[in-house]
Computed example of a mutant assay.
Amino acid sequence: ALIGENSPLMAIPQSFIQELLSRVDVVDIVGKYVQLKKGGANFMGLCPFHGEKSPSFSVSPTKQFFHCFGCGKNGNAIGFLMEHAGMTFIEAVKDLAQQTGMVVPEEQQSPEDRAKAAAAKAKQDSLSDVLEKAGEAYRDQLKITPHAIDYLKGRGLSGQIAKRFGLGYAPEGWRSLASIFPKYDDPLLAESGLVIVNEEDDKRYDRFRDRIMFPIRNIKGECIGFGGR
């Protein structure tokens, strides 16, 4: 299957997908991420999916299709957004629809599927809330921790850069997050990776201690985790 082909599980009418793809230009979509140059009937550029020095990545305006002769990746505008921007099929369709002023038809899901999707979204939103709250606490802590600030400055990272990327600091101490989350035994803290639970005695402690914290964000800008060093 080509990258970006519709899936029966998505329940978006194929006619809508075809209409959407007829309104977008794959050259414009790819061109936002890859520098393209006209080469005959097609446009060529360095493949964004593998390292190369000579362009082998071709985009066809007539076929509305991209193809890399080096790594073999190919697909349409939807597939490019999925593969390069990390979007799901639905997200890519909605992104393109927004650009063209089209409205994506509601998915024809069963009540059970809708309930499952709503529950999964609610859980993801809750995890995001927990991670954002922790990130805010880490950022506040960095401002009042001189040795952490000195560490960053020693590596050429200014306060402006730290603010731009939302860097923070996890203080020493085994349960520092307990002051941020009074309900320290909340399962979401363990699921989010912020707290480790000892299986033998069920004791809990912070995963990150005395660490510079780097938030990891998805394409929507939501915090989905942290890196610490």
Rank of each mutant, 00 (worst) to 15 (best):
A1K: 12
I212A: 00
P215S: 00
A85M: 13
H67P: 00
K116H: 06
A11L: 01
D95R: 15
G39I: 10
P55Y: 06
P13G: 06
A190C: 13
S192V: 01
V30E: 02
G75A: 00
A11N: 10
F16Q: 07
K121N: 10
P146L: 10
V104M: 14
R164N: 12
I90M: 15
L188N: 10
E172P: 08
N76Y: 01
V195K: 00
D186M: 03
E112K: 12
R229V: 13
Y151S: 05
Q124W: 04
T145K: 02
Y33I: 04
D201G: 10
G166I: 04
V34H: 04
A77L: 00
K53R: 15
P187V: 02
A190Q: 13
F181Q: 05
R204Q: 11
K123N: 02
K37P: 11
I224V: 15
I12A: 04
Y151I: 08
L142W: 03
E132D: 13
K183F: 07
P171N: 05
H147M: 04
I161A: 11
N198Q: 11
L46H: 11
L177C: 06
L127A: 05
D25I: 02
E199Y: 09
S56V: 09
P105W: 04
R229W: 05
L36Q: 07
F80I: 04
L96D: 12
L188C: 03
R229E: 09
K53V: 07
F66G: 07
F165D: 09
A137R: 08
D140L: 12
F226Q: 02
E199G: 10
F65Y: 13
D113G: 07
A97D: 11
A85L: 08
F49Q: 11
K116F: 08
K37C: 09
M213A: 07
R164Y: 01
V24S: 10
E200R: 14
G4V: 06
G31M: 10
V59N: 04
Y138P: 03
K163G: 14
D201I: 09
D210Y: 03
A120H: 01
L167E: 05
G79R: 02
I196E: 12
V103T: 15
F57Y: 05
Y184M: 07
D125A: 14
I212L: 08
G101Y: 11
G193M: 04
V34E: 02
S126Q: 13
Q108P: 01
P48W: 00
L81N: 00
E199S: 14
R114E: 08
F49G: 14
